Simulated scan of single mutants.
Amino acid sequence: MTTLTKPRIQSIDLLKGLVMVIMALDHVRDYFHYSAFFFDATDPEQTTWPIFITRFITHFCAPAFSFLAGTSAFMIGKRKSPAELSSFLFKRGLWLVFVEIIIINFAWKFDLNFTHIGLQTIWSLGISMIVLAGLIHFPKKMILVFSLLIIFGHNLLDNIHFDGSYLWAILHERQKFEFTEGHTVIFAYSLLPWIGVMSLGYCFGSLYDSSFDAQKRKQLLNGLGIASIALFFILIAFNTYGDPLQWTNYGDVSKTLMSILNISKYPPSLLYLLVTLGGTLLFLANAEKLKGNFVNFFCVFGRVPFFYYILHLYLIHLMAVIAAEFTGFGWKIMVSMPTFITRVEALKGYGFNLITVYVVWIIVILLLYPLCKKFDNYKQSHKEKWWLSYL
């Protein structure tokens, strides 16, 4: 049975690695697929099933990683006092916010002027950790209730709008602001639901205590995973609550099914979280005994996710710059651009088919593996270096 300390819980590393690798597919699509510049990949009226599925499977990445970040925080807390854990989470959260604003935004745009700042995945993880730094001092049952109230109740706020409110954009509504002349910021990952996901993951950390029976953990995770997905379909059937975008009957089975599965990520709706976290729990329940080279391969990425995340963005964007240059569009078209939407006219005719996207994705993963493997070995052999815990 796995324990909290040594060895590491391989099923968690495996899931982290899988979501990191799958996440790269979506980012490769952002830069290389012709459709990324013209329409939403999940729009039933414009997309195709291969494009839709390519986008849909990446929905599982952010919820799974945010949830597991909370679980990891609980495990770290087994080796630290509450005060030490709180301090660590607070400092790491601040570090992640800095990384999002400076390092990640530059990776997306290659813009030294930081004309357009997007606050996305790493930002939400950072702020969620800062909040969790305070939450850990409350009883675990209270944290669980807090988490469930946010996840199940935040869609009640969907019809409340405060145009021009930075606070509301940060908490619940994706908005874009011009904070100085010629400089904009977009709060892409509204925080309220993501805070609930991480704190929920923290509560689940107790299932991985060395005293917790492995078979009981499997049964509990399977039961909760199945219940989450069942509730997803129940709410879908009623089509009244759980997502601001209700599904449409197109009179066509294919389009209607796409509409049903076209769940909102910005912010993540209850339906979005039910199906993605349900899948996360089912995977965790049934992956503990998986072994072999396949598992070891993905676990490498799962043990160094932050290092991998930064590298993969820079590599993908650099490859896109080269692709634009060699396809006649010029490398500058991939530099200092505010959003993909604004590139439509300039990039008309640019892009590749989905097969090429998958080939580029595989190349990216294979190029990054040896670097991640080397860094993983370094982390494993230098656990005394405190700064490695921030990477």
Rank of each mutant, 00 (worst) to 15 (best):
T2G: 11
K6W: 04
S11Q: 11
I12H: 03
D13T: 00
L14I: 03
I22R: 06
I22E: 03
R29L: 08
R29C: 08
D30W: 12
F32N: 03
H33I: 05
Y34I: 07
A41G: 09
T42Q: 11
D43R: 01
P44S: 07
T47I: 02
W49A: 03
I51N: 01
F52T: 04
F65D: 01
F74Y: 15
M75Y: 02
G77P: 05
G77T: 02
K78Y: 03
P82D: 14
W95T: 12
V99F: 08
V99L: 13
I101R: 09
I102M: 10
I104C: 02
N105K: 12
F110E: 03
D111Y: 06
F114C: 08
I117W: 04
Q120K: 14
M129Q: 13
I130N: 11
I130G: 11
L132M: 05
I136G: 07
I143K: 00
I143V: 00
I143D: 03
L144E: 04
L149C: 11
I150S: 04
F152S: 07
F152R: 01
N155Y: 11
L157S: 02
D158G: 05
D158Q: 12
N159Y: 00
H161P: 06
F162A: 01
S165H: 07
Y166I: 10
L167E: 08
A169Y: 02
H172Y: 07
E173S: 07
E178C: 00
E178N: 01
E181K: 08
H183M: 02
H183S: 03
I186M: 10
L191Q: 10
V197S: 01
Y202E: 00
S206L: 07
S206K: 10
A214E: 08
L220I: 13
L221D: 07
G223M: 12
L224E: 06
A227F: 11
A230G: 13
I236Y: 01
Y241I: 15
G242M: 04
Q246A: 14
Y250V: 11
Y250W: 14
D252T: 05
S254V: 06
K255I: 13
L257E: 05
L257H: 03
S269I: 13
L270P: 02
Y272E: 13
V275D: 09
T276V: 06
L282D: 15
L282M: 14
L284T: 06
L284V: 11
A287C: 14
E288R: 13
G292K: 12
N293H: 12
N296G: 10
C299T: 15
L313T: 08
Y314R: 11
I316F: 13
I322M: 15
A323C: 14
F326H: 15
W331P: 04
M337A: 14
I341R: 14
T342N: 14
E345Q: 12
L347Q: 15
I362C: 06
I362L: 15
V364G: 09
L368M: 14
L371I: 13
K374L: 07
K379T: 03
S381G: 03
E384F: 01
W387V: 04
W387T: 05
S389E: 12
S389L: 01
